[in-house]
Design a protein around this nucleic acid. Sequence first.
RNA 1: GGCCCCAUCGUCUAGAGGUCUAGGACGCCACCCUCUCAAGGUGGUAACACGGGUUCGAAUCCCGUUGGGGCUGCCA
Length: 493
Amino acid sequence: MNNIRLRFPPSPTGKFHIGSARTALFSYLYARKMGGTFVLRLEDTDQSRSTKEFEENIMEGMEWLGLNWDEGPIPGTNKYKGDFAPYRQIERFREGLYQPYIDKLFKEDRAYYCYCTPEELEEEKKAQAEKKEAPKYTGKCRECSKEKIEQYEKEGRSKVVRLRLNPEIIKYKDIIKGDIEFDMALYGDPVIVRSDGMPLYNFVVVVDDLTMKITHVIRGEDHISNTPIQIAIYKALGAGVPEFGHLPLTLTPDKKKMSKRFGDISIDKYKKEGYLKEALINFAALLGWSSGTEQEIYSKEELEKVFSLARVQKSNAIFDVERLNWLNGVWIRKLSLDRITAECIPYLKEAKLINDDFDRIYVEKVISLVKERLKILSEVIDLTAYFFKDLVLNPEKLVFRKSTIETTKQGLEDVIILFEDTPMSKWPLNVDEMNNLMNEAKNMHNLSNGDVFWPVRYALSFSEASPSPAELLTVLPKEVSLKRLKAALKSLS
RNA sequence: GGCCCCAUCGUCUAGAGGUCUAGGACGCCACCCUCUCAAGGUGGUAACACGGGUUCGAAUCCCGUUGGGGCUGCCA
């Protein structure tokens, strides 16, 4: 490993969703591509919104997707791996890791206490709005006299720490967006420590990235306007800045930032519905990145080799579930029968189609018939229920649209005769032999395909859309097939 | 409102001045295959936001307009 270091710093205030997964993925891929280190850091300074449940949800989601971090929390423990532990900001705060940096800012007069009350600030803002000015903190407490401070302290006023911003132009070269510059005169001095003593995001993120030796900050473009403040803090601390790269956002279909509606698109929800991690990774990678070739299907391993930030799109991308569905189907078809069977079993169990002592061989045969018809794993329930139990037979549907009741009955009768004549020892025949047998039945009374194949298929599957009758016959036990065919025949008289 | 980012088919995108009567993929439609569905095959639908420049030549460069998004918190 070289000294290239990237981090993914979620705040555990919501579930892991597609948007944050993509951000994590891009950092992860870049780290892997460059042979660097990928760090997971939990940004939990907002204790009122952070929860253990969300932490677990995020880490489980990342592990499931295979976004393995080299440094960070070890799930299910309070331990960490990596040389810069702890990797939870609340613990870093408790260990006093941020204080020296705050002290340094005070010492160099880059920080000061602000005693303004929320009401005062609100009033200030209102006045600015009336004058059509940009709302920002005016810097009232910047040059507070000793007497004033003493008075405030006597009053027992609470205070925050603000960073003294220089009225300068701050520019940086974004890896993805290019040159960006800000007029800091337009910003008010930001709060870096809350009145309860807890340092705030813009400050801790800088200290952590600095102390964790992060070299590349890859994050969503919703952080672009935070970047100049953070650069100001780096400079005030006398530190060099890392490279910044701001990813275009993943927008919901109504074009809103995803994190504002994460509940709809959380990773665990997609997992539960039956999306494969391969499909989710492939999908997320293609949201804002392309290889420049016409290849669309990528495994994570391939992406680790070909990913580059230079080919990341500048504009926002809208989440399109149709495309995800297609990719999921592609991956279901691409992956091994064994793997897909394993993925399907929980759904079959939940639907009570199988229990704990199910026949794995049989289930695998069943899955083999529906594998290429599956787009989402949960569909396996409806697609295969008739392999495990009888469903409702609708006699009208037994008759093909070009057939009659008479020819349909004849077809079923002839098929039953031929099946019964086939010795159990030869059953099941293979697909070709099954087809031959049904063709033979068809020829007995000069029937058409629809007189034989359709009713057999419907009788066996109780469905108008299913695998071919020959395939069904090779998988269903002979006695079940015969029973269903006879029941179908009977329903027509 | 202010600041910032962005702008190719409905969606994801290729395109880094001439190879663009703009390519691929998803979706949709049609046809083929066919007892059905799916898969597969073939074909089709559909875009350079607008206006000025620069240039012999612009989807590509510049400016403006419009549109979209983000930020504007003692959230991250």
